[in-house]
Amino acid sequence: MRIGVVGAGKIAHTNVEALLKTNRAEIVAIYNRTLKNGQALAEKYSLNVPVYSNLVDMLDNNQLDVALINTPHSLHIDDFKLCAKRGIDIIIEKPLGINYEECQEMIRLRDENGIKATVCQTQRYLPHMRLALKIVEENKEKLGKVKQISDLLNMHYFTDVRPKWFFDAKLAGGGMLLTHGAHQIDRVFFLGANNVNKVFARLEPSQYPGIDGGYQIIASGANTSFTVSCCGSPIPHTSNVQVDFEHGSIKIILFSNGVEEEGVYLGDEHGYNRVDDMPQEDAYLCQFIAMLDYLEGKPSNAPTLKEAAEIVRMLDKAKQSSELSACMEF
């Protein structure tokens, strides 16, 4: 499978490394607006391939099977369009688009041009998430239905090491809601709280125009609900998910922080017990194996454009709710 890399920023390095580890793909070309960054990516992974500063040149001068799109959020729609209209299959970073309308347009482009496309929603492949899903499957009758899910993320977002385009509303399309909300909403949807119909949210401002610095989202439906919250201040890094069932609970702690110990815990009315059966496979490698399976027509759990679009639709509703200080229908 011949792959062209679109964008050579930080996440492109992570994605290329995982893709090469599958031993199922050949990277044949790289595009990046700043040529030296594309050349640095090629050099790091010993890729003797042409590097372009013009995307059209790369697409038209190489016989590509797949384009791996790693560009800033606001560029996704145009990059997707250029690839789709040339009949090139697509792997694209999350969020799929900066709003639901863009996502719908990409779904239309996929169907109109007869291509396949999938989205990097890496969080669902984390070892913790895979173990949690295994626990749910093995204890389905005992646990019962999902009643509520809470997802908490605290991290210092506005640091010097983060690429500057994240703080430019024109390129990023938004702030933490788009960047990390796409992960958190994917987690709660994937774990079973996707049947909601009302959303209320509040976005926290930041020092950068058009860039939020955190958010709180409450969503509810007839049988389930979820809360998602995120704070980008310089506070201890915290990331955990709690899934409450009719007869028990699963707590996923993604990082140890001096108070909570990283791991997956199964609990009942007597307390939690750690489950020591964590998968060892890397999340990015598992993700790319699933996506290549999908592109090759094999059975796969690769994220679909429809799933990614629903995540962005939820983020849109959260933003609208915050702007209007009102509960929104979903």
Rank of each mutant, 00 (worst) to 15 (best):
V275P: 09
D276M: 13
Y284R: 14
L285F: 15
D282G: 09
L292S: 04
Y272S: 10
Q280L: 13
N273V: 14
P279V: 07
M291V: 01
D277W: 09
D293A: 02
G271V: 10
L285T: 08
R274W: 08
I289S: 01
V275E: 10
G271M: 11
D276Y: 12
M291F: 00
P279T: 07
A283M: 13
D293L: 02
M278Q: 10
D282K: 10
Q287K: 11
S300R: 02
I289V: 14
G297D: 08
L285N: 05
V275Y: 08
P299Q: 08
K298C: 01
D277E: 15
N273H: 14
D293C: 02
M291S: 12
M278L: 15
L295S: 02
M291G: 00
Y272N: 10
L285S: 06
Y272C: 05
E281L: 12
L285Q: 04
A290W: 03
Q280R: 13
Q280V: 11
E281T: 14
N273Q: 15
P299E: 07
P299T: 03
C286E: 13
R274C: 10
L295V: 04
D276I: 11
E296I: 01
R274I: 14
E281N: 11
S300F: 04
D282H: 12
Q287M: 15
I289P: 00
P299R: 06
G297W: 08
Q280Y: 00
C286S: 15
L285Y: 15
E296P: 00
R274D: 04
Y272W: 09
L295Y: 02
S300M: 06
F288R: 03
G297E: 05
Y294K: 12
E281Y: 01
D293E: 07
M278G: 06
E281C: 07
A302K: 03
A290S: 14
I289Y: 12
V275D: 08
N273T: 15
I289F: 09
P279F: 04
G271A: 11
D276G: 00
Y272F: 15
F288H: 14
D282S: 13
Y284T: 06
L295T: 05
Y284G: 07
A283H: 10
Y272I: 07
Q280P: 00
N301P: 00
A283V: 01
N273E: 15
S300Y: 03
L285I: 11
I289N: 13
L292N: 06
Y294M: 13
E296R: 09
A302C: 06
L295W: 04
D276N: 15
D277M: 12
D276C: 10
P299H: 05
K298G: 00
E296A: 12
M278E: 10
L285P: 02
Y272E: 12
G271T: 10
Q280G: 12
D276F: 12
R274H: 10
Y272D: 11
Y294N: 03
R274P: 04
V275F: 08
N273A: 13
N301H: 12
Q280K: 15
D277Y: 10
